[in-house]
């Protein structure tokens, strides 16, 4: 899979920075999530946007604002929601309080994630991305800025 990490301008603040993924075919995962859910879940998307802006500008992306254990242990894959009981999930990869990568997601309609093909696909994508980024970080090809608010290094995954 080929992709690049791109910084979302509107979500870059003093406390945290939000990235998303652009695939080789030009699809931007977070935009795709917004487009897929904007008609039915307008209120929920607005709420999620408000929460992300609060994290970017006020509080940082603190762990307790996310649903944990959405990926493998230690891979940082988690989910953002508008309300704790909400079925709408936005999968993310969280790197401490300062950097989050927003992916795709959708509404959970089944008891387990694996039973929902759409969510399962989105979740597996984020796990794969997390693994690839980790390899680059370990190899020193990706690092964190001095203020830890940005990735620095090679953010293009085209090899």
């Amino acid at each position: 899979m080929k992709f690049s990490l791109i910084k979302i301008e509107q979500f870059s603040g003093e406390r945290s920075t939000f990235y998303t993924i652009q695939l080789e075919d030009g699809v931007v995962l977070f935009d795709e999530f917004l487009e897929e859910n904007s008609k039915i879940y307008e209120k929920e998307l607005k709420n999620i946007t408000q929460r992300i802006r609060s994290m970017a500008n006020q509080t940082g992306a603190q762990e307790h604002f996310f649903r944990q254990k959405e990926g493998k242990p230690g891979d940082g894959v988690c989910a953002l929601y508008d309300q704790p009981k909400s079925k709408l999930r936005l999968y993310c990869i969280r790197y401490g309080n300062a950097i989050v990568i927003l992916g795709g997601g959708g509404r959970k309609t089944t008891r387990t994630l694996q039973e929902d093909p759409k969510l399962d696909k989105e979740n597996k994508l984020m796990r794969e991305l997390s693994q690839k980024i980790t390899v680059r970080v370990k190899a020193g090809e990706i690092d964190f800025s001095v203020d830890e608010l940005e990735f620095i290094g090679n953010l293009e995954f085209y090899d």
Partner: peptide, 23 residues
């Protein structure tokens, strides 16, 4: 590598719908 930034038009519409009081 220089960092690429992205400005989502759909996100701009959502942000425009949020009042200062709501935020």
């Amino acid at each position: 590598t220089k960092q690429r930034t992205y400005q989502s038009k759909l996100l701009d519409q959502i942000i425009d719908s949020i009042s200062p009081e709501e935020q």
